[in-house]
Nucleic acid binder design. Sequence first.
RNA 1: GUCCCCAUCGUCUAGCCUGGCCCAGGACACCUGCCUUUCACGCAGGCGACAGGGGUUCAAAUCCCCUUGGGGACGCCA
Length: 464
Amino acid sequence: MSNTVTRFAPSPTGHLHIGGARTALFSWLLARRNNGKFVLRIEDTDQQRSTQEYTDAILDSMKWLGIDWDGELMYQSKRFDLYNTYIDQLLETGHAYWCDCTTEQVDAMREKAMLEKRKPKYDGSCREKNIGPGENRVVRFKAPLDGHTSFNDMIKGPIVVENTEMDDMILRRSDGTPTYNLAVVVDDHTMGVTEVLRGDDHVNNTPRQILIYKALGWDIPRFGHVPMILGPDKKKLSKRHGALSVMEYEKMGYLPEAVVNYLVRLGWSHGDQEIFSKEELIEFFDTEHLGNSPSVFDTKKLDWVNCEYIKAKAPAELIPGMRNFLPEGAEASDEYLEKIIPLLQPRATNYKEMADMTDFFLVSADKLEYDEKSVAKVFTPEALDHLKELTARIEADSEFTHDSLEAVHTGYLAEKELKFKAIGQPVRLAICGKVQSPGGLYDLMLVMGKAETLARMKRAATLA
RNA sequence: GUCCCCAUCGUCUAGCCUGGCCCAGGACACCUGCCUUUCACGCAGGCGACAGGGGUUCAAAUCCCCUUGGGGACGCCA
């Protein structure tokens, strides 16, 4: 076990979205790759917006993706005492001060700054007031007024920010609760986090947090900021672009491995390789090959990756996933599904499609629905004659194998001097109820079995 | 507005750090053909990019500068 410790720190104010899932994946991979620890922390200091339901949903999504974490799940809401200890320490060492400015006053300062074409900041008017605690007062960090703060981003390289760009951020709200920046620093330090991998939207927070680390006299971890995921219009991915949460992809019938593969490959590369097993991901992952520009989420490619996984799986492995999408009360034994699935694998994009393509297999001959238009068009008198004759010959075929069925059909065709076209559609329609279905004719028959095949063909003959 | 970040095919990307092997490679998508009993799979091929402009250099996708474009952040949210 190395000393690498990474973390993922979602705030339970919504479902786990694909952007968050990807950063979680990167952090997890970095830890696993280095034989280190990956810890999970729930950032619920905003007690108004955080809910246990979302925490549970996030955890479910993590588990679905196969991202496991080490040690106890941590809740920031249970550590307020700890945060307050350090805020007090900052107060005592002169790195923080009490402030009684009202929200209105601060807003006015910001507006004024904007008008003067400066960055909107708190102007530090309470810095030297030396007021103590009191009703409606907050604790602010006393940021340095000169110099600069820099760090070497694992993804973006060196980043330097002038200290004058940062204002005196609030550490403790007037209701006594700690704010994000303070809590994050205390947590990452006390949890022994060595590399912080997080979303790009936190780059601006990093110098502020570094300032807190320094004020507390703590070692500073390495930081890496993962670029955003964009929608097709190159805007930050949002609900109007469609599915956002990991859960939705589960509901659409994607395989978790495929989602993981696609997400990791979005923004990270290992030469030309596209498909990675979990083991390969862990073996190859590195921060050097994380891209530093935002990437557009491409559903088409996700679909392709998902197809690759479906094709690569043993049929039996797909049964449980597919069952979730089978209609209520559908009767299908594992044995039957295992025979059907190979026909679906080269054709289906996801579990849902697999289930949809299976419909005609799961009803008995007398309940099979026939597509009316196709019946009218395909079941001509000649076609029905062929069907009846074929039915008799199949019935007489004691072998009922792919080869024997082929012999039956081609033999009949040769006798009558017909092309396959003459029987292709009629037979398919007879046994599937539609002219388009997955699988070759003989494969279809073999999957259904002789009795069912004959029953369907006989019923079809009575239709027109 | 201010600050930070980013910029290779439509999209994901390799290459960039350690210039020449790159008139730029792979994948998705798209198009064409082959295979074929539907639909697919598969196979073969095609289309298609170094944002623009200056430098540095014998040589630049690779290094430097500017412009343009895009994104993010500026909260008693995280």
